Amino acid sequence: MHQADDLIIRPARAEDEPELAVLNRTTWTPLADVGPRPAEDAGVFDETHTPDQFRLALLDGRIVGYVRVVPATPLASNRHVRQIQGLAVDTSVRGRGLGAALVEAACAAAREQGARKLSLRVLGHNAPARRLYERCGFVVEGSLAEEFLIDGRYVDDIWMARPLTD
């Protein structure tokens, strides 16, 4: 658990799903998401999206952010890599360092799982997220040009990573 000022970061629990689902819907944007907006009745947890994969940011007991960390692939030869597959911060609390705190919590979770590297994918047009990841020590390892068609525009898929070893 991470705590700074009134911020608490902790693993998700099954009972967090209703509040987490609302946050997931309200933070959805084509700037960051390639899939459709989640439906009003959509949950978050299922067989492949389990509570143990999520770290939540709470302010005054309210979920205001999350990060999801999973194995990059199911391959044994790739088990030393974890990947961020989802990061969101409520717009009402942005600019307070929650994104960076969640990224650091993701790094800590990945280290606890034995990972040596944390990777992620970010859309090329998502400058705020790219700046956040760069501030947190991630570097671009590659890109896929015009990988997605979002709102009538082709968007690059940027691959970034950070080593977790000293």
Rank of each mutant, 00 (worst) to 15 (best):
T27E: 11
W28G: 00
T29S: 13
P30I: 14
L31P: 04
L31C: 06
D33F: 12
V34S: 05
A39S: 00
A39G: 04
E40Y: 08
E40A: 14
G43H: 09
V44D: 03
E47P: 10
T50G: 12
P51N: 10
D52G: 10
Q53A: 07
A57R: 11
A57T: 02
L59D: 00
D60N: 06
D60T: 07
G61D: 12
I63C: 01
I63K: 08
G65P: 10
G65F: 13
G65D: 09
G65R: 12
Y66H: 11
R68T: 01
V69N: 07
V69T: 15
P71R: 14
P71V: 02
A72L: 10
T73I: 14
A76Q: 05
S77Q: 15
R79V: 07
H80M: 11
R82K: 11
Q83M: 08
Q85D: 15
Q85M: 07
R94W: 03
R96S: 00
G97Q: 05
G99C: 02
L102I: 04
V103T: 08
E104H: 10
A105P: 00
A106E: 10
A106R: 12
A106N: 12
A108F: 04
A108N: 01
A110I: 06
A110L: 06
E112P: 01
Q113W: 09
L120V: 03
R121P: 01
